[in-house]
């Protein structure tokens, strides 16, 4: 059985890394002290133990593997970055000593240079769509991710990160995933999973060949969906800074209520939906959201956070995002 590992975490380096990732995503930087406080609170709640993030002398914290994993995940959750070690391992390694000892140190996309992004909700939906077509029961995403994750680790000798919104893959990974889907879930996705991917090679490429995936700027799935709906796929990389997306507030509220009812969740009154939605969006998006306005305008970089807020606040599982979006979802200049 595996040995317990202890990790010495260089906090300034790790916080710097968080800010680098936020900068890459054009998100505002976060004061390291704020990061430390918020992360320690969340850590205490999740792990039921106190974490000293302020060692005056060294700026380092020591923790076991479970805590280190949880800590990285918490930073990812809180600050909308992905610190999983299968991406950009060299930088994470410098902050998390001994992380390099883990056997799964994948450099996705490094071996053939062709890299793709597969949105997880499309991955789950594609499998279950095909299962329904064969009169098979759908499988919950949690089971799909664990089963796929284990098979992929064994076949490709590296781990996939199912904690984000998308999987970053190369051609060989995609072929392995197609095999796994057929073997584990008894379906074949028409034209393969590649047909659900976005190529990352059309985006500006970083100079460092070995970190194509880590440094490529992944687009949010909602952004991609919107672009697809308005026929702008591929263009948004250039034009996104000037785009605003508008959502019809009434349609959004109605969709939340009906989707929850469809899923069997306890009913929430429209007023409560309106208030919870407004509060959550305001808190998460640093945006003054008034749900009494007929429309909400969002910038491109807020779209993923928006989708996540709706998903976590109202337990809506997305298979088809169309019904979440209002009629006026066209980006406007």
């Amino acid at each position: 059985m595996s040995q317990e590992k202890t990790f010495r975490i260089n906090l300034p380096t790790l916080f710097e890394r968080v800010n680098e990732r936020r900068k890459e995503q054009r998100l505002p930087l976060v004061e390291p002290a704020v990061m430390a406080v918020r992360a320690s609170i969340r850590f205490a709640i999740r792990r039921q133990k106190h974490l000293n993030l302020k060692d005056e002398n060294t700026g380092e914290a020591e923790m076991d593997e479970g805590d280190a994993d949880a800590f990285c995940q918490i930073l990812g959750d809180l600050f909308n970055v992905d610190l999983h070690y299968d991406e950009d391992e060299s930088k994470t390694r410098s902050a998390l000593e001994q992380r390099a000892a883990l056997p799964l140190d994948g450099v996705a996309g490094a071996d053939d240079g062709a890299t793709f992004s597969l949105p997880l909700f499309q991955f789950y939906a594609a499998i279950n769509r095909e299962r329904r077509a064969k009169n098979l029961r759908p499988i919950e995403p949690a089971a799909i991710s664990v089963r796929t994750g284990i098979k992929f680790s064994i076949m490709r000798r590296r781990a996939l990160n199912f904690r984000g919104d998308e999987l970053l893959l190369n051609q060989a990974d995609l072929e392995a995933l197609d095999d796994i889907v057929a073997q584990q879930f008894d379906v074949v996705v028409p034209n393969g999973l590649l047909s659900h991917c976005r190529s990352l090679t059309s985006a500006p490429q970083p100079a460092k060949a070995g970190s194509v995936v880590a440094d490529a700027e992944p687009e949010g799935f909602l952004a991609r969906l919107m672009n697809r709906l308005v026929g702008k796929q591929g263009d948004h990389a250039v034009a996104k800074d000037t785009h605003h997306y508008t959502l019809d507030t009434s349609a959004l509220l109605l969709t939340i209520v009906t989707r929850r009812a469809y899923l069997g969740h306890k009913p929430i009154t429209p007023d409560k939906v309106r208030s919870r939605c407004g509060n959550a969006l305001s808190a998460e998006l640093d945006l003054e959201v008034d749900m009494n306005d007929p429309r909400i305008a969002l910038q491109h970089e807020q779209l993923d956070a928006f989708a996540e807020v709706i998903r976590s606040e109202f337990e809506i599982m997305f298979e088809d995002m169309d019904d979440l979006l209002g009629k006026n979802k066209k980006p406007t200049e």
Partner: peptide, 18 residues
């Protein structure tokens, strides 16, 4: 065997915990 093959321990455990 999963651990020896490099499957992260939490992922392997989760398969059985599920």
């Amino acid at each position: 065997r999963m651990i020896a093959a490099g499957v992260p321990a939490d992922m392997a455990r989760e398969a059985f915990i599920q």
